[in-house]
Amino acid sequence: MRFLQFIFAILSAVLLTGCVEIIDDLTLNSDGSGCFKYNVNLSSSKIKINSILALDSLDGKRVPSLDEMKQKITSLHEKLKLQPGISNAKLEADYTNFIFKFSCDFASIEDLQYAIKLIAISENKGKPIPELDHKWLIFSGTHLERSVPKITLKKSKQITAKDQLKLKEGTYTSITRFDKEIRAFNNDSAKLSTNKKAIMLRTDTYSLVQNPRLLDNLIDLKQ
């Protein structure tokens, strides 16, 4: 749980700086292999981030130094590179504009999920994280089920009005690409690309924090 708490603490801090733009971009081939990209763009909050980094603590919590953040991000990247079924793991980190782009290829969706789970457990000092037993991606070749693990996040009552505003300024975009055309999907908020091979879900970070299941989708591909 400690790892999840750490991740959520980081996420909360990032999301609350306002104007964060996050893209998760999953490309799936028919054989189950693919590419996963995760991009975080905080360039429109440079001043806020730099001012937070200049502090020792904020709201009673210690603020990590830029060097500590760099070490942590690099260490996570190094760990991912070593996971079975994962190849071509890349990290582009721009600490001036605070843009982070991560990508890796995977042999199967199970490998990707297993790799993420192993790293999380390793960061949790080897203790299991039951939340990660949930399979958030299930792919059969023509059918993808995407669901977010059941995670308890801060409810709106606990988020101040000021923080709500900041969260509403941020965006989260989830893109899923296939080498076949999409036949149907069940999330009404999703939008199909013109070539019908990619589907996009966009939401603001406040709504996502309130209901992570906004990104759930069942997608059927043409044979």
Binding site: K48, I99, T194, M200
Partner: peptide
Amino acid sequence: KTKKFIWEYDEENYDYTEQEVEAEEDM
């Protein structure tokens, strides 16, 4: 006045490119 980066999407396939644009932040 500051600079920020945004991602612009191609509606054809949702590929995206990074664009540097003018921005404003409170100071």
